[in-house]
């Protein structure tokens, strides 16, 4: 079962929810931190991680002695990453998406591919909890290849929680695509509502069943409740606005450590989510 935890905007409590869900239950869970631009889950987990693999993309390299400057590669490249000069084809790797089109197009076999590191992933395990974290190197722009790789890494596990990148564009879509259920985390404020409605549009377009968890319940207004009821979206749970949670978060401690009440709250939310995701699997 694959459950993605997402939100239209960052800082709404996605990581708080993902981490506390993972720590609230007694069965094996694999938590995947797919927020590879800003992976934060590890700060709240009682385990150590070790970097296990570099993530690379394939990058074309031109053998200039074989290159006849025919231009077939540049024509195949939709990303304008190749220009042909009298001295041979010039590849601008920062524009390359690694599609392999140039390589297939070259009639001289003058292009080969070499891996270039764009990030890495790290893993750790303690008791029932397995954790995988992807990390994009600073200055690199393409998060999706790393997200794809760590999702694949966790593909065989029975219960996978994916902490997705915020937003509604490529990285979020890559993380959420193929999930059995998506939990959208939001705050009960006008900003939260606006971001939630964008995220709802996106998961509806991806055709994945979803529900909402309201974080910092009690601040703001009733807009999110009203929106969910008019759109027939289930509110799976609410996490209260508690300065204790904010402070423990600031120190890098999970909310389930505050007391048994919170552990019970998150476990209840987890069971509800698993139920909904299971309904999807059966149908």
């Amino acid at each position: 079962m694959r459950i993605a935890i997402a939100s239209g905007k960052g800082g709404t409590g996605k990581t708080t929810l993902a981490v506390n869900l993972a720590l609230s239950v007694d069965f094996p869970v694999t938590l995947v931190d797919a927020d590879v631009e800003e992976p934060n889950g590890i700060f709240f987990l009682p385990l150590e991680i070790k970097k296990t693999k570099d993530v690379t993309i394939q990058e074309p390299v031109v053998n200039t002695t074989r290159c006849t400057s025919c231009g077939a590669c540049a024509k195949a490249c939709r990303f304008n990453a190749i220009a042909v000069t009298p001295q041979g084809a010039l590849v601008f790797t920062e524009l390359c998406h690694g599609c392999g089109g140039c390589l297939m197009a070259c009639p001289e076999g003058a292009i080969t591919e070499h891996p270039r590191v764009i990030g890495s992933y790290a893993e750790g395990k303690k008791g029932n909890l397995s954790f995988i974290q992807g990390e994009l190197n600073v200055g690199e722009a393409m998060a999706p290849p790393i997200i794809r790789e760590i999702k694949e890494k966790a593909a065989g596990e029975s219960m996978v929680l994916i902490d997705s990148p915020p937003g509604t564009s490529c990285p979020m879509v890559t993380a959420v695509n193929g999930a059995d259920y998506v939990v959208l985390v939001t705050e009960p404020t006008p900003f939260g509502l606006n971001d939630l409605s964008l995220a709802v549009e996106t998961v509806r377009a991806l055709n994945v069943p979803f529900g909402v968890v309201i974080n910092r319940d009690g601040i703001g207004d009733k807009g999110v409740d009203e929106y969910c009821s008019s759109e027939s979206i289930e509110i799976i749970g609410k996490i209260p606005d508690d300065r204790k949670i904010a402070e423990s978060y600031s120190r890098g401690e999970a909310a389930v450590g505050i007391g048994p009440g919170y552990k019970a709250l998150f476990r209840e939310i987890f069971h509800k989510i698993a139920d909904r995701a299971g309904e999807k699997e059966l149908s």
Partner: peptide, 10 residues
Amino acid sequence: GPPGIGCPVI
């Protein structure tokens, strides 16, 4: 600006 460090931020 956008959050993160990826393509939109750059």
